[in-house]
Structure formats: structure tokens, C-alpha cells
Amino acid sequence: MDIVYTIWLRSVKRYLRSKSRLVGSLGMPLFLFAVLGFGLNSVVVMPGMEQGYIGFIMPGIISMSVLFTSVFAGIQIIWDKQFGFLKETLVAPVSRVEIMFGQTVGGATTAVIQGLIILVLSLFMGLQINNIPGFVIAIIFMTLIGLSFTAFGIAIASRMEDMHGFQLIMNFVIFPIFGLSGALFPIDSLPVWIRSLTLLDPLTYGVEGIRYGLLGTSQVDPVVSLGVLSGFTILMIIIGSHLFRKISI
């Protein structure tokens, strides 16, 4: 546990210290809010949604923040590799699984902080939270997204030599995961074939879970969401640990 805590502490310190990254990563979500939320709010009619389209996409944008922050936190390992710091960690008499856990928990922590910042900002923009348990549910789902996608980032970073592949991963993996997730549109209204793709996307269950927590309604049963996302998290941690164990420097 000490070791996990040590690695966690470093991740969080680094995150809190890089103010520019912290502020910079708020740009995209706020932009989406403004353009999609306010822009489409009056055009798009969401039947059965008290809070309109803007209320509908807020959980989606929170998920996006958590997703990007956590993938990025996982991929950070490549920098550690290039800057040499990874050697310092790997040569210590600690198991790689512990290091991997520390990184994962650290990445998830920063991702959840990022998600919470967006959540608080959206409160100012008119989102209403019905109840405290719902808020807790949302945090649980944010944590699961954070853990699974940090582990996913670590898995990728373990196989990558340098940052060149980063754009590729962003464009062909992360953006599709976000785009297909039902963060920005209701999945019930989709044609059947896209819908089945959406249901294959693990982030969908995260978005739906957060939506259930914050808005009280969702299109996927929250218990199903919790089950699928937990399963995905465990799978990612196993794959991430496995690949990280074999990392060479």
C-alpha cells in the first residue's frame, strides 16, 4: 500500500502543480458547453427532459473530461520513459503491479478532480442536482471511468516507444470512444446498427451511469451500467498490469 500511495502522491502533486494543464483542459469542455449546449438548447427538443439538451449533455461532457484526463495520465508513462524517471521506479525493489496500481489510482484521482471541476462549473450554468445519493453515484461512475481508462492508457504506453503514436491513438481510439458513447445524443433515437456499436462502447455505460446519478433518468439500467463498467475496469487493470510488467526501457 505504501508504494501505491507513493506513486499516487507523485501523480497528484504533478497534476496540481501544472496549472496550465489544469486550466487548459477545461477549454474543450467549456467550448462544447457553449457551442452545443447553448447553441442547440433551443433547437433540440428532448422529450421527458426537464433540463433540456444542455442538461442532457452535461454528464456527457463530464465523462469526456474524465476520459481524456485519465487516458492522458496513463500515457504519461511514455514521458517518464523518455525523461528517464521510469528507470528510477523500475530499479527499486517493488513489484511492477504495485507501480501500475499507483499510477492507475493516481490517474483516476486527477481525472475525477477534473470531472468534479466541470460538475461544479455546470452547477453555475444551471444544472440542478436532485439529491446527494445521485451525486455519489455520479462520482462512483467517474471513478470507474478514471480507473479503466488510466489503465487503458498505461497498457498503450507500455507498448509505445515514444509520443509519435499518441495522435493516432487519440484520433482512432479515444475520439471514437467519446463520439459513440451517447454523451451528446440519446441512444434510443439512433438507427439500430449504430446503436449496437454504441452499446459496445464501454464509455456509454459510464455516461449513462453519471446521467442517472445527476439527472435521475437514463436509457440504460444503472445496475447494468455499473456491472458492465466494473467488468471493463477490471479487464483493463489486468491487461494494463500485464503489459506494464513486460515494459522495457
Binding site: 507523485r10 502543480r17 501544472s18 528517464g84 524517471f85 528507470k87 528510477e88
Partner: peptide, 14 residues
Amino acid sequence: IGIVFQDQSLDEEL
């Protein structure tokens, strides 16, 4: 063992 690597291995942000 303890080791001082040839290439830098510090965390510059810390």
C-alpha cells in the same frame, strides 16, 4: 543495489 544512471532520471516537476 543503488544506482546512478548515466542519463538523468529525476522528476523535474518535483
